[in-house]
Design a protein around this nucleic acid. Structure first.
Length: 201
DNA sequence: TTCAGGATGTACT
DNA sequence: GTACATCCTGAAC
């Protein structure tokens, strides 16, 4: 399987913690409406498992218009609006009907970083301040802004190379390089706040 | 480098 | 009406 091979549905049709770890080092490929191809390597993920996780929007299999995408087949993009102004990108995991997903929390640019920089800051990569360079795609809202992802892309099939958003094999993560810790921004989730379901390189 | 505060709109109670 | 899987700015240190 080459680095540019699109990850198949079976990749996502596994235990969510396994997928969250295995996504590190993989490449998100985003094709804009004008044909520009953006590429970035995943460096940080978080797992959300509705069956048992109070931090998941679909905790206890709760179905609402928003959470409907979490019940879709594995390999579907779940994108929602947060805090009124930002978006979060997730990949649906586990068999269809099991509401679970991996949140993409961070990445580094691989192709067309200038365009990503324009989406984020309105200027080219070379014009970025050190602060902007350091905080380029290290957050879910920043990543979606850089890749021009909104709810318009919610529900896209990540295994379809022609839909404008997919994930390629990139580089398999070295298990020794994968770190785990508590998830960010879920202080409301009671016992789930301590689950070590955040993974990063 | 850390910290407090505000932006902003949708989902759900 | 309240909470929210966030980010930016500006002030203080």
């Amino acid at each position: 399987m080459g680095a540019m091979t699109v990850l198949p549905r079976d990749f996502y049709n596994r235990d969510t913690l396994t997928v969250a770890r295995d996504l590190l080092g993989r490449e998100i490929v985003r094709v804009l409406p004008d044909g520009t191809r953006l590429r970035c390597r995943i460096t940080e993920t978080e797992a959300y498992i509705g069956r048992l996780d109070k931090a998941c929007h679909a905790y206890g299999y709760k179905r609402t218009p928003r959470t409907e995408t979490l019940f879709a087949p594995p390999g579907t993009a779940y994108i929602y609006l947060i805090y009124g102004m930002y978006h979060c990108l997730n990949f649906v995991t586990e068999p269809e009907g099991e509401p679970a997903a991996v949140l993409i929390r961070g990445a580094v640019p691989v192709e067309n970083g200038d365009r990503i920089a324009r989406n984020r800051f309105g200027r080219s990569q070379a014009e970025l301040s050190p602060y902007q360079r350091k905080n380029f795609l290290n957050g879910p809202g920043k990543l979606c802004r850089g890749l021009d992802l909104t709810r318009a892309q919610n529900g896209l099939d990540l295994t379809d190379p022609h839909c404008g958003l997919c994930v390629c094999a990139g580089q398999s993560p070295d298990p020794a390089a994968v770190h785990a810790g508590k998830r960010i921004g879920i202080d409301y989730a009671q016992e789930a706040v301590d689950f070590p379901w955040r993974f990063y390189l």
